[in-house]
Design a protein around this nucleic acid. Structure first.
Lengths: 244, 244
DNA sequence: TTTATGCTATTTGTCTGACAAATAGAAGTC
DNA sequence: GACTTCTATTTGTCAGACAAATAGCATAAA
C-alpha cells in the first residue's frame, strides 16, 4: 500500500530545501537578492515566521546572508573559502568534542592522506604559494604571539601547504583534517620550547617544499606528527594525573 | 554566564552560538533534552520566535532534533557518521553546483588521496567489512535497478571500500569525495552497457581487496576513474552538441 | 486480566499582527 | 557642494493565539 508518500517534515524545513535547491541549481545566482520575506511568505502560502525559520537554516549553512534596510534583504552568499573552512572546522571540532573521533585516528588520517597531497604540492606549487608558506612561517616566529595566535599561525602554515596542491577538493578535505588537529596543537603549544621545536619542523617542511623534494617533505611531516603525538600523550598523562 | 561586549550580530545568532558551545563543550550531553522553548525564551529574556530561529540554525547543522508532544522537545543529536558525511557532502555538492570545483579536480583529488586510503583498507579491513563490500556489489548487479538505485548502490560500494580503512576521519573525508563524484556516475550510468563495465571494475576492486593486494586495488581504481572520466567527457560533448 | 478506546496535558509547529532597528535614497538646508 | 533630515523599505524581535502530534492515564470492552 503505497500511499502518496506522506511528507512528515516540517514546512519550514521543506521550504529551506526548496530554496537550497534553487540556489544550488543556480536559479538564484550568487550575490543575488532573494524575494523579501513577505513575498516569499505569500508565494509559499505560509507566514513570515515560517519563512524566516527556513532562511535561518540556510544562514546556518552560510548559504544566505541578510541585511536590513531598503537595499537590504536576503542574499545568496557565495561561501568564501574562509567560511567553508569555518563550517568544516565546526564539523571537525564537533566530532572531536563529542568523542566520535579520537586524536590517534586523526593523526593516522593525516599520515595516510598527506602523501598524495604533498605529491601534488611538489608538482604544482606556484612560486607565489611557496612564498605564502614562507610568510606564514615568518609570522609564526614572532615570540610575542599569544598561544591562540600561535595556533592560528600554525593553521595558516599547514593550510598554505595544502593550498600548494592547487586542487580545490584536496584543499577542502585537508582543511578539515588540519582543523581537527588544532586541539593537539593547542595542548602542546603552551611551552616556549615546544614552539621552537614546532617552528624547526616547519622550517624543514618549508625548505623541502622549496626544493620540491617530496621525500624530504613526507619525512619532515611524519617527524612533526611523531613529535606532536608524543608531546600530546605526555600532556594527556599529566592532565590525568592532575585530575586524580 | 558571562556578559559579552557589545556584539553586532542578531540575538538569535548569539543564542545559537551559546547553545552550540554548551553542546560541544558537553554541558548538554548527547541525547539529552534541552529546556522547552518557552523556558529557553524566558531564561534568555527573549521571545519564543527568537529561540526557535536559534534552534533552527542548530537543526540545520544536525546538532539538535525536535519532537512534538509531552515527551517531546529539542534533543541534542549525536550526529551519526551518515549525517556528518551528509553535511560534508552537502558542502561538496554545493561547491560543485556553484562551479567552485570542477569534475577534473574532484577526480584528481580521488586519485591523489585514494592511495593512502586503500593502503589502510588492505591493512585493516575486517572479514566482515570485506563481506559488506561484496554484498554491496551483489546488490548493484540487480538489472532491475532504476538508474537512481544503481547510483545509490554505487555509492554504497565505494563507501564500503573506504569503511574498510577502519578510520573514522579518513572515512569522513572520503565520503565527501565519493558524494562529489555522484554527478559523474549519474551521467555515465544511463546505458546498460556502462553498468556492466562499472560492475566489472567493481569486481576487480573487490577481489583485489579480498586478496589484500594493494597494487591491484590501486590500479583497478585508477582504471575505473579513467573509464569514468572518458565516458564523462563523451557525455558532456554530446550534451554540448545537443545544446547548440 | 488483557486489550482497546478515548481523554488530557504538554510541547513543538505555524499563524497573525505589531513594533523596533537599520539604512539607502530623496528632500531640504546651509 | 556638503550636511542634515525625512521617509520608505526591509529585516529583527515580540506577544499571544491556535493547530498538531503524542505520551501517559483512565476507562470501557473482550
Amino acid at each position: 500500500m503505497q500511499e502518496q508518500a506522506i511528507i512528515k517534515s516540517s514546512i519550514s524545513k521543506q521550504i529551506a530545501e526548496q530554496l537550497r535547491n534553487a540556489i544550488v541549481s543556480g536559479r538564484f545566482k550568487s550575490g543575488e537578492r532573494l524575494p523579501t520575506e513577505d513575498e516569499l511568505a505569500t508565494r509559499y502560502g505560509v507566514s513570515r515566521a515560517t519563512v524566516r525559520e527556513a532562511l535561518k537554516r540556510l544562514a546556518a549553512q552560510n548559504l544566505v546572508r541578510s541585511r536590513r534596510g531598503p537595499a537590504g534583504g536576503n542574499f545568496v552568499n557565495q561561501p568564501t573559502h574562509a567560511e567553508l573552512a569555518e563550517s568544516l572546522s565546526g564539523a571537525a571540532t564537533l566530532l572531536v568534542g563529542l568523542g566520535a573521533l579520537d586524536i590517534e585516528e586523526i593523526v593516522e588520517a593525516r599520515r595516510t592522506l598527506q602523501g598524495g597531497c604533498l605529491k601534488l604540492a611538489v608538482a604544482n606549487a606556484s612560486q607565489e604559494q611557496i612564498q605564502d608558506v614562507e610568510t606564514a612561517l615568518q609570522l609564526q616566529k614572532d615570540p610575542t604571539l599569544s598561544d591562540e595566535a600561535f595556533c592560528d599561525a600554525d593553521v595558516a602554515f599547514h593550510r598554505g601547504l595544502v593550498d600548494a596542491s592547487n586542487n580545490g577538493m584536496v584543499r577542502f578535505v585537508m582543511y578539515s583534517i588540519i582543523e581537527a588537529l588544532v586541539p593537539i596543537t593547542n595542548m602542546v603549544v603552551s611551552y616556549v620550547k615546544d614552539r621552537r621545536e614546532i617552528i624547526a619542523f616547519h622550517e624543514g617542511l618549508y625548505s623541502a617544499l622549496e626544493q620540491r623534494n617530496e621525500e624530504a617533505l613526507e619525512s619532515a611531516l611524519d617527524a612533526l606528527l611523531d613529535y606532536l603525538m608524543e608531546r600530546f600523550s605526555v600532556a594527556q598523562a599529566q592532565r590525568k594525573q592532575h585530575a586524580s
